[in-house]
Design a protein around this nucleic acid. Structure first.
Lengths: 234, 234
DNA sequence: AGAGGAATATATTTATACAGAATTTCAACA
DNA sequence: TGTTGAAATTCTGTATAAATATATTCCTCT
């Protein structure tokens, strides 16, 4: 009998797909510098795939705006800039605000329950052991919390756009996570922000929720700005 | 000296790129039915490219959500449904509303000038000769008008999301354009809607503009619904 | 005889290796 | 210093081979 590693319905792994996932991961984590050339020969040995699948993976990363392609001149990691940082975070705050207002308008009881549940899981994350594990689990539950809130808007296409934008944000956001080592104080502050968010959301206070969400999303920008400037990126 | 056909910065033509553009065009124009299988062998002779470039083109169409890929089972044209129609148009109305509010808030004098200019070009489109040409030119200037309005928001990323969503809308929108043969009356009605939009936009009347824009964008939905139902799509 | 299911055959996707075209590099020279 | 022109590198596309899925045939059992 064959051993079936994959979930039912999940697409079986291609070289193109796995190369795409790994490359994306590595670019977001800053393994390759912005504007660095992505040499086929290097990628081939790095990801164990040949030109065909790799070009396919790179095409998708171009669509994600994490890579730029110049015909006959290969692929490069997309540049980073303060202008892009500001625009991405602004666009994200605007979009997330829109989605939140819709969610408050459209969300049902299941949605409220989901928001409460994910908020609770996030608040309880202080218990775990090592700092590395803490950061991983906190980030994962933090994403789940915000995704739960957004899901209330009930629009697959708006949520898809939110995802796409998040992919682009994540490269900048990673700089923030590296910088902020998640002190107990910072964690407690975030916990309070989230609690406040939950409260106004469940009270269906659109204006207040919108405002809190914006502030919550924009806080990393000054820190990331500092990091980028320190690296000579303007 | 080399002859340079292309704009500065515009990517030079690849087989992958031209195959992508043609395929996208053909899918939007309904040349391939929803869920129709896209056979490599057929695509190869149709677009004069071999598997490599074609897979690359198809990858990008998957990112555009115009094509779906199933591992080891090839590519299919993305399905269409009433649910998707409604969600796409809703998401678009919401996003366009958001962008319009920001444009009214942020747009400068150049923006106002551009809105007026493109509105004028659109209003003057009745003069041209054949009906086919009329539809082409009207559609082109109509897009330019709405793009000019949106550009005021001053956010490349929001405009990029708008573009992406518009690609997905266009397959449905094409059904509407085919159905509405652009009678002089319909054209006159649209002209009035656009004039009203320009007026409230320049008056910076956010609420009114938002409301007019929503109505303007949502009008095709009932007609497209009828067409889809007539084709047995629900 | 007809339905169900294994076994075979065909078709299709996926990956690789190679050939041709374009670009970049780098040294020689004005 | 700047330019020119080969050599090397790299990108782009095709042909081919391997893996996988789909269709067909044929056999068995009720």
């Amino acid at each position: 009998m064959e051993l079936n590693v994959f979930e039912k319905g999940a697409p079986r792994q291609n070289l193109a797909i796995s190369a795409y996932q790994q490359l994306k991961h590595d670019i977001i984590r800053g393994l390759y510098a912005p504007e660095q050339k992505l040499l086929m020969s290097r990628l081939k040995e790095q990801y164990g795939a040949s030109t065909g699948p790799l070009r396919e993976a790179l095409s998708q990363l171009v669509a994600d705006r994490l890579v730029v392609a110049i015909s006959q001149r290969g692929y490069r990691v997309a540049p980073m800039s303060l202008a892009e940082l500001n625009d991405i975070y602004d666009a994200r705050a605007q979009l997330e605000g829109l989605i939140l207002r819709l969610a408050i308008e459209r969300g049902d009881d299941d949605w409220e329950a989901m928001v409460l549940a994910t908020a609770h899981r996030l608040a309880k994350v202080t218990d775990v052991s090592t700092p590395d594990e803490l950061l991983d689990i906190w980030d994962q539950r933090h994403k789940a919390f915000h995704t739960a809130i957004a899901s209330g808007c009930n629009s697959p296409h708006l949520l898809q756009m939110r995802d796409t934008l998040f992919n682009q944000v994540e490269r900048y956001r990673h700089l923030w996570l590296q910088e902020t080592v998640m002190s107990p104080q910072a964690l407690e502050l975030k916990r309070q922000e989230h609690a406040a968010l939950v409260e106004v959301i469940l009270a269906r206070d659109t204006a207040q929720a919108d405002s809190l969400m914006r502030d919550h999303l924009m806080t990393p920008v000054p820190i990331i700005t500092r990091v980028l400037e320190a690296r000579g990126i303007r």
